[in-house]
Design a binder for these strands. Structure first.
Lengths: 190, 190
DNA sequence: TTTTTAACTGAATAATTATTCATTTAATTT
DNA sequence: AAATTAAATGAATAATTATTCAGTTAAAAA
């Protein structure tokens, strides 16, 4: 009895992310994934029931992995700015180092593959950050704007900087990162 | 001789935008576009050579329409903040009122339909804004961070706020808009 | 070593989707 | 009002892509 090769799932995921970064969700086929992962098309179906399941499982994997990273070393008891800085830096680093995943998640949100419940579950994982922002508003440290505005602004801004850095092939240096943190902080600051 | 019905192009574009908003670029088919536009599939090919051409032409149309709106009433001679405010408000309003187009353009950037030269041409249309930001830096009014960071942050933040407003079905009020402008302004301010 | 069994293969099939085309319809010209 | 011609139609065809499956391979058990 030959056992399932768990490394293959990683290779399939890796291949999918690479192709989505290259051509978008609209550009991937099961054949291209198989080829990129150096396996036969049929093998994909041993690991995943179908294309939709493959995408959905990868999506959930990415969301789980990324959000759990976002909150490592985060202490909800620490002062607001300390907590915010921790999460902010975790996000920034993660998205730079895992650019393909970020692109993939973004694409999934506007695709026929990911259903509403999956999206909601993903959103749910950001609760600690939502709570933190609300605490910041209570403590009068940040603007009293609706949380979705503040968070959207910060998250969208960060994503876009990282995207442009990749496309224009710019290196993000430590001082640039500090300046970028200031963009976020000054924006939200009361 | 029956003349081409120019209104049909509008209907086709409109149908495509609606479907892309709903299901993403990965979710549209020529049949679904035709159906949504209340025409026969074959008719699509009278107006557009093929699917890629349809998408590319719609993309160019959207980019042209949106960027030209962004710079209406913009006076490059006016003080920095006045000019910035004009463009910022034009963008904000346009994206709220033409949400589908914004989503479509975003999706196109990561798709197999739009080629590099088309993307570059689109980027080129933002030159006046790039110039303005660079002027703001020279006048020491805003942070001396690379322009792509500042612009990316502002544009990404704005997009994401508007996206979340749509998905969570939030109305963006005038005071909210003012507060949102402050997010951008405070972020970039020196 | 032999047997067993599930992974693996990739060509074959099924399903979907892009594109074409013979036919019909309706503006315009004569 | 008849003739002309290009738009419009939608079923047929072509192309692409998802999925299956009969046969092969290799790990584990006997």
């Amino acid at each position: 009895m030959k056992p399932k090769d768990e490394k293959k799932i990683k290779e399939i995921f890796h291949a999918t992310l690479k192709l989505v970064k290259l051509n978008g969700l609209a550009g991937i086929t099961m054949q291209s994934i198989a080829k990129q992962a150096h396996i036969a098309t049929g093998t994909l179906y041993i690991y995943f029931e179908n294309k939709e399941k493959l995408i959905t499982e990868l999506f959930n994997e990415c969301v789980k992995k990324s959000t759990s990273t976002y909150f490592t070393n985060y202490d909800p008891e620490a002062p607001f700015k300390v907590g915010f800085r921790t999460i902010w830096e975790n996000m920034f680093q993660y998205r730079i180092n895992n650019f393909e995943e970020s692109i993939f998640i973004e694409q999934c949100f506007h695709s026929p593959f990911i259903h509403q419940d999956t999206k909601l579950a993903a959103k749910e994982m950001f609760q600690p950050l939502v709570k933190l922002i609300e605490r910041g508003k209570k403590e009068l440290l940040i603007k009293s704007l609706e949380t979705f505005c503040i968070l959207g602004f910060l998250a969208g801004g960060m994503s876009e900087i990282i995207k442009r850095a990749h496309y224009f092939d710019k290196k993000i240096t430590r001082p640039m990162m500090e300046e970028t943190f200031l963009l976020s902080w000054d924006a939200m600051k009361a």
